[in-house]
């Protein structure tokens, strides 16, 4: 009997890429599928279990065309839940690498850099969780200079770089600075406090919780952002300056961020904001950052109510 395999299977190729070697342990339990939030929030066809299966069954084309290959943000929510200890995002990344090599490209709409504004400072390079932007030497308008360029197949469209760029040179469709600022304007009623909520697209798992957001009157304005890391302190200050009573920023619990460390970046920014608020002598307790875990059904209501209560207490004359 001969045990030589002359044809390299798709599975062999995936396993040859570091991270891909876990592939064959999958017994198709489906835990990762319901743990991951992409299927519920973004793409019903998204299914890591099925992608792994496609690789094992040599379904190369189907795998390369599957949204699972492209939408996984390597948040690793599924990894600690997998009973077979499969590093699923690493397997998916291996498939993606082969897909890119085969000439496929991401269906995600990613960020763009405005070269007329980019100063080549490289802050976006440091901020991005995915090593998508890099600095390149380029001739623009006859001048050789450093510019940021974003690898679209790496960019997951979190918008962290958009918030990080000091010159506003990067934008992401739907959540550019302008579009967010436009939403900040809240109908103000004298009797009740006004509140702006910046909420990341991923921290509320349950539909029930999302409908809670809709259940408040117009003085509570909800602004959806891809990641809490998309918010820079100025946005909150702008809201306060515009006469809004309070700002609530909601992101994922550390370790559960859909964009790896977006929520940690927000934690740093928020402590910076505290200092700034102190300096410009705005009253405190008006800006709050909360990190919500995937298991915390109903927490959003508690947070909004307690914020409104605090703001109410401030409004009432002593």
């Amino acid at each position: 009997m001969s045990h030589e395999n002359t044809i390299e299977t798709f599975a062999d190729q995936v396993k040859a890429i570091p991270g891909g070697e876990h592939l064959e342990m999958c017994y198709s339990c489906g835990t990762c599928v319901s743990k991951c939030m992409i299927q519920q929030k973004l793409e019903p066809e998204y299914n890591p279990r099925r992608l792994l299966r496609m690789v094992m069954m040599d379904m190369r084309k189907e795998a390369f065309e599957s949204p699972t290959t492209w939408y996984c943000s390597q948040c690793d929510l599924c990894y600690p839940a997998c009973p077979q200890e499969i590093h699923i995002s690493a397997v998916i990344a291996a498939v993606k690498q082969l897909a890119v090599e085969a000439g496929y490209s991401t269906p995600l709409s990613t960020v763009s850099v405005d070269e007329s504004l980019c100063a080549g400072c490289g802050i976006c390079v440091m901020a991005c969780p995915y090593e998508a932007p890099h600095l390149i030497q380029k001739e623009v308008d006859g001048v050789m200079d450093l510019f940021s360029e974003v690898d679209e197949n790496r960019c997951m469209s979190c918008g962290i770089c958009v918030a990080a760029c000091p010159l506003g040179a990067i934008s992401r469709k739907g959540v550019s600075n302008k579009e967010i600022i436009k939403q900040i304007k809240v109908k103000k009623q004298k009797s009740i406090p006004s509140l702006v909520i910046f909420i990341c697209d991923w921290c509320l798992r349950e539909d029930d919780d999302l409908s809670i957001l809709e259940s408040y009157p117009a003085n509570v304005r909800v602004i959806h952002i891809p990641c809490s890391g998309r918010i820079d302190p100025q946005m909150a200050l702008l809201a306060l300056r515009a006469g809004i009573d309070g700002v609530l920023v909601c992101g994922c619990r550390p370790g559960e961020c859909h964009y790896q460390h977006g929520t940690d970046i927000t934690t740093c920014k928020m402590s910076l904001l505290d200092t700034m608020i102190d300096q410009i002598k705005l009253r405190d307790h008006r800006v709050k950052f909360v990190q919500i875990g995937t298991q915390e059904r109903g927490r959003i209501r508690q947070e909004i109510d307690s914020m409104l209560e605090t703001l109410n207490a401030r409004k009432e004359p002593h």
Partner: peptide
């Protein structure tokens, strides 16, 4: 058929929600 990934609780009713893939349906339920 499907291994639940998460149980959440309604803090008021103490009812529970099971999050799982229904593999026969190929959907998250």
């Amino acid at each position: 058929q499907g291994r639940p990934s998460l149980i959440t609780e309604d803090p008021e009713t103490y009812n529970l929600y099971v999050h799982s893939e229904d593999i026969a349906l190929g959907e998250v339920i």
